[in-house]
Design a binder for these strands. Structure first.
Length: 647
RNA sequence: GCCGAUAUAGCUCAGCGGUAGAGCAACGCUCUCGUAAAGCGUAGGUCGUCGGUUCAAAUCCGACUAUCGGCUCCA
């Protein structure tokens, strides 16, 4: 082929030839004029670039429109520049930090100097934003030398950009200018600002420069923008819907838990309905653990400080623990984790290889002094209960035991129909953060990865997310408003066996070190419950609902029959109440629907006469009349099978 | 811990310098009813706490506490 032509591979695998130097826009136009109209950027061999950049070599490309992730990334990236332009017009003294696109929109970190920006200022910025967007300015790309770039920002007195540029390599620096605003930027950008039709500045927050809490705090403005006004309306509507699922709102409405300032912040109180829910979850896991060879233990809420010095937790996490309590010249700590207690149970007896694996489980309550600004409902608290277990095994047993714990965790999440992301949390180069020898670490990380591959797990690797004693497999899930939380975890630990001098006698009659797996499928009962509430939007499957059935007699004449039915349901362990209030049936139904009670049994003269019940399913309405005995067995089956609600 | 916002009846919220209001819930009475709200009545608040400004503060100012959105952190 001639050197003058390049071969372009499209996402559908088809190939086309273009003259060398053809731009993304020209390629889009050659495919269809409609595509060219909505094109935002082009991904060339994995790199997103401007549509007007020439392409000089064979490449696999994708034209990015709003409907693609890369397209939205470009759109929001350019929106961040527009935000900066609007802010610059309104506050000429503002100094800009960084302004990247994020999962839902974008933000810009800005130093407003003395000026304090408030929520009320955002409207004016939005107005100015649309005003500058409507100018349909193009984004002009300019390659610039490091020296020039530095002097540009030094002149402006912007120490943040100077800081950024100093970390860049000369010859690799670009500026982008749209309208009257120029920004240090790698790009790419949308063809012109006019395609941004709708903007909402959603949030104002403080953010440390470079995420370092020792540096200056800038004002971060969060926003989201769209190519159509209607999309913004839909987005805002979705946010409202998500807030309805918020466990803090539902937790209160459904009587799950409360936080009381006199008891203390971050110390949730489980209300009767929440306690039913939690005990049901615990019973579910406990039963599964018994099947899988776990032994349950119970350990106290405080422990001698020496325990945590031995484990190494004390120095590593001093700042996030409650101060020790002094008793009889000894110091005791509220336990921040259960592991050391379990390790001491392990050491209390001579262990043979025949005893392993030893799997010690405990619903253990721990206390951690979380920063006040971090506390949130049941998701982030200062006192919580882990569904903890420690598995002491030989090295030969390790991989199988890791598999078993992953299998258990998957089983748990499948039971609830919860989608999880799996993350392998490994160490990074910052050796000071970790204990134990690198040799152990490499081994543990290797084993985790092997198991994950053998099980065919879909995972990502997160360097720097390991705990100080070992790498982890974390199960991550999102809450109603899209924030990610770690729930389940499986951790491999070669460090604690050394620190606690744990041994077992092998078949060779010699002493050996066991390996420990720390694992918690739910993670914490509190956090899991918060996610559970949001996952089901409070419409729990029958087996979990605090109140499973409400019997609604139409008039007082049916109260006795209703109580008879209730008694029979209670005999098979169903949580049922009778609504004997002198309300009309519509009112009783409404209250039961609002309380999200899965089944309502409406009982009038007809039903009493024929020994039947009229069954109403929450959110579905009347599902017909059943013989009471049939209903009884159907309900029992639904509970036993842990059937998930239809959506 | 840091930045910003918020705090009024059990709940959801209005009032924003002139001595506190609604709906729902609660309680009482009437109604005994067929698949998402029966009617009437009663009671309920030192307006988060402490201090300041003012003739007068729920309302303006300050500190503290708690909550919310972020940042940092998360064994």
């Amino acid at each position: 082929m001639s050197e003058q032509y390049i071969r372009i591979t499209l996402p559908d695998g088809s190939q086309r030839e273009y003259p060398k130097g053809t731009s993304g826009l020209e390629i889009a136009e050659s495919i269809s004029s409609g595509l060219a109209r909505v094109a935002l950027s082009i991904t060339v061999n994995g790199e997103i670039i401007d549509l007007d950049r020439p392409i000089n070599e064979d490449a696999t490309i994708a034209i990015n429109t709003w409907d693609t992730e890369d397209g939205q990334y470009t759109f929001w990236h350019s929106s961040a520049h527009l935000l900066a332009e609007a802010v610059q017009e309104l506050y000429p003294e503002a100094k800009f930090g960084i302004g990247p696109p994020i999962e839902n929109g974008f933000y810009y970190d800005i130093d407003f100097g003395e000026k304090q920006i408030t929520q009320d200022d955002l409207e004016a910025i939005e107005k100015k934003f649309l005003e500058v967007a409507r100018k349909k300015s193009s984004f002009e790309r300019k390659e610039i030398s490091k020296e020039e770039a530095l002097s540009f920002y030094k002149e402006k007195g912007n120490e943040y950009k100077v800081d950024l540029i100093e970390g860049l390599e000369d010859g690799n620096i670009t500026f982008y200018t749209q309208g009257d605003f120029t920004d240090l930027c790698r790009g790419p950008h949308i063809p012109n600002t006019g395609v941004v039709k709708a903007i909402k500045l959603t949030n104002l927050a403080g953010a440390y420069w470079r995420g370092d809490n020792n540096s200056k705090q800038l004002t971060r403005i969060y926003g989201i923008s769209f190519p159509k006004q209607k999309m913004l309306q839909e987005y805002l509507h979705r946010i409202e819907e998500a807030k309805r699922r918020d466990h803090r709102k539902l937790g209160k409405e459904l009587g799950i838990y409360m936080i009381d300032s006199m008891v203390g912040s971050g110390l949730p109180l489980w209300l009767p309905n929440g306690t039913v829910l939690r005990r049901t979850l615990e019973a579910f896991l406990r039963e599964e653990q018994v099947k899988r060879g776990y032994k349950e233990v119970i350990t106290p809420h405080i422990g001698n400080l020496e325990l945590y010095k031995t484990s190494g937790h004390y120095p590593y996490y001093k700042d996030s623990q409650y101060d020790p309590i002094e008793v009889d010249d000894e110091e005791y700590m509220l336990k921040p984790m259960n592991c050391p207690h379990h390790h001491r149970i392990y050491s209390s007896d001579l262990r043979s290889y025949r005893d392993l694996p030893l799997r010690l489980a405990e619903f253990g309550t721990v206390y951690r002094y979380e920063q006040s600004g971090e506390l949130s409902g049941l998701s982030r608290v200062r006192g919580f209960t882990q569904d903890d277990a420690h598995i002491y095994c030989t090295h030969d047993q390790l991989k199988q035991e890791i598999k078993n714990t992953i299998d258990l965790t998957n089983f748990v999440f499948n039971t609830f129909g919860m989608p999880v992301d799996i993350r392998l949390s490994f160490r990074d180069e910052n050796d000071a953060k970790y204990g134990g020898s690198t040799e152990y670490w490499d081994r543990a990380q290797q084993e985790i990865r092997e198991v994950a591959d053998e099980m065919g797990l879909d995972y990502t690797i997160a360097p720097g997310e390991a705990s100080f004693y070992g790498p982890k497999i974390d199960f991550i899930i999102r809450d109603a408003i899209g924030r990610k939380w770690q729930l389940g975890t499986v951790q491999v630990d070669y460090v604690m066996p050394e620190r606690f001098d744990l041994t077992y006698v092998g078949s060779d009659n010699e002493k050996h070190r066991p390996v420990i797996i720390h694992r918690a499928p739910f993670g914490s009962m509190e956090r899991f419950t918060s996610i559970l509430i949001e996952h089901f939007a409070g419409n729990f499957p029958l087996w979990l609902a605090p109140e499973q059935i409400k019997i609604l007699p139409i008039s007082d004449d049916q109260n006795d029959y209703a109580q008879e039915c209730a008694t029979k349901l209670k005999e098979i362990g169903v949580r049922v109440t009778v609504d004997e209030r002198s309300e009309q049936i519509g009112g009783k139904i409404r209250d039961a629907e609002t309380a999200k009670t899965p089944y309502m049994l409406i009982i009038g003269a007809k039903e009493m006469e024929s020994g039947t019940v009229s069954v109403r399913r929450h959110r579905k309405g009347d599902i017909g009349t059943f013989n009471f005995s049939d209903f009884l067995s159907n309900v029992n089956a639904e509970i036993q099978q842990k059937t998930l609600p239809e959506d």
